[in-house]
Design a binder for these strands. Structure first.
Lengths: 146, 146
DNA sequence: TATTGTTATACTCTATAACTATA
DNA sequence: TATAGTTATAGAGTATAACAATA
């Protein structure tokens, strides 16, 4: 459908409503589990890489370092992560997810992805796989663009 | 890479940074052509369907009816669209894109998509097509979900 | 009374810049 | 002096509700 006449829709124009819908669908799930959107994003990031400095963590999730502080406060308060000071450099804090944080993250992610499957189920299996594969490539290559 | 072990990344988690990057890349292009992001979105919508009521137009682009008024004011001021009152129902306004609006939209879109190609070029041609096709399907099926 | 467009208001998000404590 | 984290402030973006004109 695209490119047969050399024209196609904007990538951004197709992604934007999709993003809105996905966020809206996540909202009740997050609320049910007592997580904010940024809280979930942070847990998701920590699930992979174990430790990091707050500034690096912020950049990794696409936020300002000052913006995630409230988020980290809440997550720490709920026992979902710990952030003791780094003995080697007492300015920095070693942010690590707790077992409870991991459980919470997995529970939420399971529900989130179950919701996403409603959409992905509309696609032929081969396209579904190509979509997920392609998005992973694009998301990972973004930092290298400039 | 997804699904070999039954696990995959969140669709939303991959799309979010992509969306941010695309928007950031569009910004200088839009500025150079004297368009706001919403202005471009509105022109893009009008390029397809010719007329409509402002409320329907707003909903179509995913905005509140009160939010696009300033946008329409600017576009009208710049001669990119017209919105005479509907003689049949003088409450409504018939919003139509002008020739100049069409030209402006096409010029911007050409540059926007040229930028997007930098990303899409990272994908194998078959995946590129599957991605565009799949996103179009998902974006179109969203309203029918609930 | 209901609807279209509009305006006004409040609220949330985000970015920036100052501050502290360590180095 | 520079850096990590924090706090405070201002700005942009957004949603909500009230209003005028028309139906």
């Amino acid at each position: 459908m695209p490119d047969v006449d050399g024209r196609r829709r904007d990538l951004a124009a197709m992604i934007a409503p999709l993003q809105r819908a996905l966020v809206a669908a996540e909202q009740p799930v997050l609320r049910a589990h007592g997580l904010s959107m940024w809280g979930y994003v942070v847990l998701d990031a920590l699930e992979g890489q174990p430790v990091r400095t707050q500034a690096a963590l912020a950049e990794f999730v696409g936020a300002d370092k000052s913006r995630i502080i409230g988020v980290l406060d809440e997550l720490e308060n709920d026992g979902l992560l710990e952030r003791p000071r780094d003995p080697a450099d007492r300015r920095a804090r070693l942010v690590t997810i707790t077992g409870e944080g991991r459980r919470r993250h997995r529970a939420v992610q399971a529900e989130v992805q179950r919701g996403e499957e409603r959409l992905l189920g509309l696609l032929p299996p081969a396209d579904r796989e190509a979509l997920l594969r392609s998005l992973a490539v694009l998301a990972d290559e973004l930092p290298k663009l400039d």
